[in-house]
Write a protein that binds this DNA or RNA. Structure first.
Lengths: 245, 245
DNA sequence: TATCAACATGACACTTGATTCATGTATCAT
DNA sequence: ATGATACATGAATCAAGTGTCATGTTGATA
């Protein structure tokens, strides 16, 4: 014996404001939702009630994530609606909220995904470089190739800057930290000239990001190898004319 | 003798979709709204009916633009509402639509404003450099200073990428073109090593943009001179260790 | 001081789309 | 089978703004 009334008494419906201060107004602990742990590691350990507990659930979650990557990557965060994402994923709207608290949440997750995939890609590409400079050249090329192959993820990361600056910063900070260490190590072995590794790391990232945008996303026709080589040449040798002698 | 009826018969209300294909669905000529002409020049010559025709109008327009710069710069495009902008500008909501067709329009205008101001700033900063490399160093520092002094405009430009990719591209393309010319000229005089000027230009812009974000916007406390110097050192001399003798 | 563009106002009609929730369906251990 | 738990559904709700328009107000010009 049950009631046939559907969706009548609402209750505390209250739209959350996107971004800024009171990001997730109510739940205190949710604030730390897996950031500190997962960003550098592989497996997903979610402390909230949102993580799927079965294989079926994980599959659905991935379907939604994939759909979101395409939708947000192509239309942008604002234009990509949850309904479009769920339609694309072939699940009901409500299913979305089984795995994500809101649209921001998927975006955050996608930034992490990008971080993991890119890191893996770069690690492989650099694996058999014999020097830092060689790694630099290979890494740059690999980055450009990754950008061209994953324009959606690429855009998602850039857009995260405006949706949740903190993930965006964390994303770059992570890469910067690693980069910096690598440069310092290379200084130590005398492979490169001593210099400010921190600033060099950010400068090199910026260089890669812009070229990735310009030649990976924007202009997808030109071959990437010459681009990487030309940029590498500047990085390695500098603009200054070397005196003949 | 007039009627007291207010706002009754609506009519063809029809929300426009932001961005993409049918950017401004109805009016054909509006499509070309001043892009080709104004982007590089100073004065505002607007072919539509939106341009103010009196001094009073121009003043109001500027008030709105200033308010929009702050609102969009701080809250981001999505969060910045037209009503908040007009409130900040101390004008009525309807006044907004006297000068701009929609929120996108102001953003576009702000990107142009950024372009003009930055160009002027850089031109002045570079004015008395005696070589391309000196100009490079001075320009980089000036850029970082500009970014730190104009965080709102800086963010607006970055966000334009997702609101109207074409203005964003035009913005960078303009700078790239100039930059490229300067590099080619410097090659000609033997001030710098020959190389791919196009790619160098984009690489250098990317480097500046990232450092501007990192040390101009994100971390506003560190002094900028050392940053510019360190980055310049890498640009000029390169990472490669120079063999002694 | 009459006239008329240009400028300004602000209430509100109208959409959009995020989020919730009452209800259903798989799946699996016992 | 039974029950429990996880997963899934999608119609309904409702806050948030955008863009419009009927009506005032300014101020320059004749």
């Amino acid at each position: 014996m049950y009631h046939v009334i559907r969706c009548s008494g609402r209750k505390g419906y209250q739209r959350k404001k996107y971004r800024q201060d009171v990001l997730f107004g109510h739940s205190g602990p949710a604030e730390r939702y897996k950031y500190d742990s997962v960003i550098m590691s592989e497996p997903d350990s979610s402390p909230t009630t949102l993580a799927p507990k079965t294989n079926r659930g994980e599959l659905t979650r991935q379907k939604i994530l994939d759909a979101a990557e395409r939708e947000i990557g192509q239309k942008g965060f604002a234009e990509a609606s949850v309904s479009a994402i769920t339609a694309e994923a072939a699940v009901a709207q409500g299913t979305f909220y089984l795995y994500f608290r809101n649209k921001e949440d998927v975006l955050r997750e996608l930034v992490l995904r990008m971080g993991r995939r890119l890191r893996r890609h770069l690690t492989l590409a650099i694996a058999d470089a014999n020097s830092r400079l060689e790694a630099e050249r290979a890494g740059l090329l690999a980055f450009l190739e990754f950008a061209r192959a994953n324009p959606n993820l690429y855009r998602v990361v850039e857009e995260s800057q405006f949706v949740d600056p903190s993930v965006y910063h964390r994303y770059y900070d992570d890469f910067a930290r690693n980069y910096r260490s690598a440069l310092i190590a290379a200084e130590g072995t005398g492979e490169i000239r001593p210099g400010n590794a921190e600033i060099r790391a950010w400068a090199l990232m910026g260089l890669a990001v812009m070229l990735g945008h310009r030649y990976g996303i924007w202009d997808t026709s030109v071959p990437l190898k010459p681009i990487a080589d030309a940029a590498f040449d500047m990085i390695a040798v500098g603009l200054e004319r070397r005196d003949e002698r």
